[in-house]
Write a protein that binds this DNA or RNA. Structure first.
Lengths: 209, 209, 209, 209
DNA sequence: AATGAATGAGAGTTCATTCAT
DNA sequence: AATGAATGAACTCTCATTCAT
């Protein structure tokens, strides 16, 4: 956990440091992320960094637990409220778009999620995370899927974890499109088209007949 | 391309070195993989490594092109031959199981595939790979999907690239199960169960009714 | 250019590091000079070195431009002031002795000059140097020679570049005497004798009659 | 000394190996010269090299003693024969041109000479050389100068070693012109012009009056 | 609390030399 | 005698972390 010093910081500075760190972890992945670049970016001294955080792992865990955790919280709570008023197809599209909205605002957090997904379980930071919160960051869609199953809207035969993986892969796919250089072109319509495609598969499966 | 020296090696040694390298790249990802660890693992001298390969990139590209390339080749060709004699559901299960067979033999190669998927396009080794083979390693299922669409068995409305991503995510999912420590328990039945689940989604979509 | 960190150092430490580097470059030449030896000599950590300088080239260029440049500056300016009050023979002796004085203080800088003279023009560091200062370090005596020709004191038929090479070779000769192990014996008288010899050749040529 | 194996080689092969080595030492200097490049150039196996020579030093010493020694021998003997029939000016020009002829045929040997001139006396190979032949390779012109002094044609007041250094510096100067990219233009006339310039200085000194 | 210089282990890579075939 | 794979020390450079100010 970050040291008290970090929480004593004026909020805008705390935010700024966090943002720079998120950006670095997203671009480089956990291990290759460089503290030097983060402090240079943030315009703080190296020593200060170590007065805010125990070490690299401390910073990383803070981001994963706080930032990613909060997005999930938001998406889930928002989602739950609106679930009542839509049919399933609409809702999945809605939440997907909300996701994409968040993704456009903070695509970096998704990068970090995906990095986590690939992490060797033997990686010390991974083990530490696991002790703190069981697998929560790679189950982004899981609570919602479960909720839909409970309500009988998603077929109970569906393997929820598998579906979660699939939906996360769509984020990755989107990220790859987004990063293909056509980023500026990647507007509302592209998102809609993609969601149509997703909707199609999830509604009908892939086969003819 | 590896140097002649490498190809002159007795096969078991060549295999051994390759295996150690694959294992390191799979565990650590391209950038964090350490030549020092590879040679320590393989029990060869650092200097020997550089008699075999130009540099780290050379080794990595060799693995991606040769090892991963060959798996794809095998799976695809084998698959194509058998496509005629099965219905689609059977076939997808078959090819998935063939995949899983290969995956159980060399789960590391999938890790490497996934690492490639996340690689920054500006990464020099990525650019070199792209010049050699256009995007082939992250489109594992694409040719088969396309083939099925052409034959009219997969609905033409299906976004092939998206489906490819989804199927790759299943590999990742499988990898995560496999690596959860229950690896020894992960037998034929688990594979079947998983494929049933996949089949279900791909056949019916996920919704009730 | 060295990083700000280097210039922030207490002067005695900055001097010490520079001295160790000069000594290494002089003894080994640019390419064979070893950063490891320099930091071991200077008693600093490897990492510290790279907080001071971008890389080996950065250090080398700094030495060439600053250390050698300043000697030339001093010798030349001092020389120009005194040119008016002496005949040519006296002046050349004077400037030669001034040179030799500097040479006794920092014989290593001459070694580095001579290394530069032999450097392949394709050597990257050589090209960088050339972009920064056009050929200045291997034309030590050229401006003064030119000045004397302009004033009509050196015969206009003299090939100035050739003479510059000759005078530089005298430095080299002196260096070789200096380094022959008799260094401690190499006093004022030896310098005078050598300058007499030089003066003789430059005054009369070498032939009888 | 090279091993017997080397002398048992057919002459053309022995010559070829020597030539490749000379070329490498000239281009790179003693320390940076690479045995790998030499054997690659010469088209022989690494192991063969070490059956011909004890080590790198052995090869280098062989070249210095044999190749450079023979040139000096030739130039000196040839020179002595012709000294009787010319005046001094003519002779020095002649021998200079003979030198330059040799230089155009084997400029590499001069590079090696100059490398030796710069070598740290503490360099092991330098010490070994010194034990074998006292300073012979950096006194190219010395015997001839001495001979001329003895005959009374060069003024006895001339410091012979200094003059030797000067004349060697002219070789270096020539080498630098030769290597300036105008190598193909560097014909008989350029040599003559340069020798005129040299002759002028040596005849009259550099001063007006 | 803030600073930034100091640290040293470890990265990829090169190369003279050895040795089994 | 000839081969070329094997070796390991040394190279330049990076980075998370510490510590004196």
């Amino acid at each position: 956990m970050p040291k008290q010093t970090f929480f004593n910081l004026p909020e805008h500075k705390r935010e700024h440091v966090t943002r720079c760190a998120v950006s670095e972890f997203a671009r480089q992945g956990y291990k290759q992320a460089s503290i030097s670049r983060i402090v240079a970016d943030a315009g703080i001294a190296k020593g200060s960094f170590y007065q805010y955080f125990e070490d690299k792992d401390d910073l990383f865990m803070h981001i994963v637990l706080t930032e990613i955790g909060s997005i999930k919280q938001t998406a889930f709570e928002e989602g739950r409220d609106q679930l009542a008023q839509m049919n399933l197809s609409q809702f999945l599209r809605h939440i997907a778009k909300a996701q994409l909205e968040a993704f456009r605002e903070q695509p970096e957090l998704f990068s970090i999620s995906l990095d986590l997904l690939r992490m060797a379980p033997s990686e010390p930071v991974y083990e530490k995370l696991m002790q703190t919160v069981e697998g929560a960051y790679n189950t982004f869609f899981l609570p919602i899927i479960q909720h839909e199953i409970d309500k009988g809207r998603i077929n109970a035969k569906v393997n929820a974890r598998m579906l979660n993986y699939m939906l996360m892969s769509i984020n990755q796919y989107q990220l790859s499109l987004f990063n293909s250089g056509e980023a500026s072109d990647y507007g509302e319509e592209a998102v809609d088209a993609l969601m149509d495609d997703l909707d199609f598969i999830l509604s009908s499966g892939i086969y003819n007949q």
